[in-house]
């Protein structure tokens, strides 16, 4: 059958609208490619700028030596990497069980009204800036803590130590993990609970065996989000960790994390190109760490989602 393909005449108004449509699409493409370009230039710049220090010293020396003495041209920041690791892991060990239990209480045990208040309260608290956490821990917790340590364990510290930093991070990630976990638990269908309970399990068994599995991807991504936040947190940690560039001997010794190293060396950084480059290499390391953990999180989340299909 022979037919025409196109309307005979396009009205003025319609063609004007189509032009507008086309232009707006082009603007969108430009904006989106700006993001791409920024991201690429971002990585390229970090790599280029850290090239100076990499070409002078071996990467191995930079990553695994723990002498950060810019005045003697030594830029090993292993102590900071180690400190980051310890502080993050320790804070996650404390934060995960506490916040998941608290989230279960809010989502499953508390009455409706209380639940609404609690979760909106915690949502609001998720927005507290990290400097405020740092400030309160530094001026409210550190002095008391150092006195207590001295009294009970005869440990002499200033109170500015890895432990305080971990506690600060723990408190900071509470709202993140709790609110996301509550959200993913509440998103589960009621039937799921009913089925499990009608088989005669106790409430906790139901939560443990059914809900945790069904909400698994959500809970894990909540944890990983908290982990990422703890890994990259700068200000609060820099305020309470004491900023000493040596391998910490105990949890109650001062230390350094990658971000706090950048902050505390900032003053000198503008003047000496070599140190500037070394610090940018530190930032690059941090960026790689965080990005790799983010990508792992995404992959794990996708896998779990496929497996459990909720």
């Amino acid at each position: 059958m022979k037919v025409k393909g196109r309307s005979k005449k396009v009205g003025n108004r319609l063609s004007f609208r189509l032009v507008k449509d086309n232009i707006s699409r082009k603007i969108m493409i430009v904006c989106t490619s700006i993001i791409f370009l920024l991201f690429i230039s971002f990585v390229v710049l970090l790599v280029l700028k850290s090239n100076l220090v990499i070409s002078k010293y071996s990467i191995k020396e930079l990553l695994f030596s723990s002498f950060w003495e810019p005045e003697n041209h030594k830029y090993g920041f292993f102590s900071a990497t180690f400190g980051t690791f310890i502080v993050t892991v320790f804070s996650m060990i404390m934060a995960i069980p506490i916040s998941i239990l608290a989230a279960v209480y809010i989502a499953e045990y508390s009455p409706n009204k209380l639940r609404r208040y609690l979760s909106s309260f915690i949502d609001v608290l998720a927005g507290i800036p990290s400097v405020v956490f740092g400030l309160c821990m530094l001026l409210g917790f550190v002095p008391i803590f150092s006195v207590l340590l001295k009294k009970w364990f005869q440990i002499e510290t200033t109170g500015m130590c890895l432990f305080t930093a971990s506690i600060t991070l723990t408190v900071m990630v509470f709202p993140i993990i709790v609110s996301l976990t509550v959200e993913s638990l509440r998103a589960l269908p009621v039937e799921l609970r009913e089925i499990s309970l009608s088989l005669g399990s106790t409430k906790w068994q139901m939560i443990k065996k059914t809900l945790f599995k069904a909400a698994g991807p959500g809970i894990i991504s909540a944890i990983l989000l908290g982990f990422g936040r703890a890994l990259g947190e700068t200000m609060a940690v820099a305020m309470v960790i004491g900023s000493k560039n040596n391998i910490p001997t105990s949890l109650f010794a001062s230390g350094q994390t990658l971000p706090s190293l950048i902050i505390s060396s900032f003053g000198e950084m503008m003047s000496v190109p070599e140190e500037q480059s070394a610090l940018i290499f530190v930032a690059l390391t941090l960026f790689v760490l965080v990005t790799v953990s983010n990508i792992i999180a995404k992959v794990v989340n996708n896998k779990l989602k496929k497996r459990w299909r909720y």
């Binding site: 902050i263 960026f287 965080v290 990005t291």
Partner: peptide, 12 residues
Amino acid sequence: FIDILWGTPSII
């Protein structure tokens, strides 16, 4: 990309 940018610490 947006997720990676979201996760990047602000100090960077």
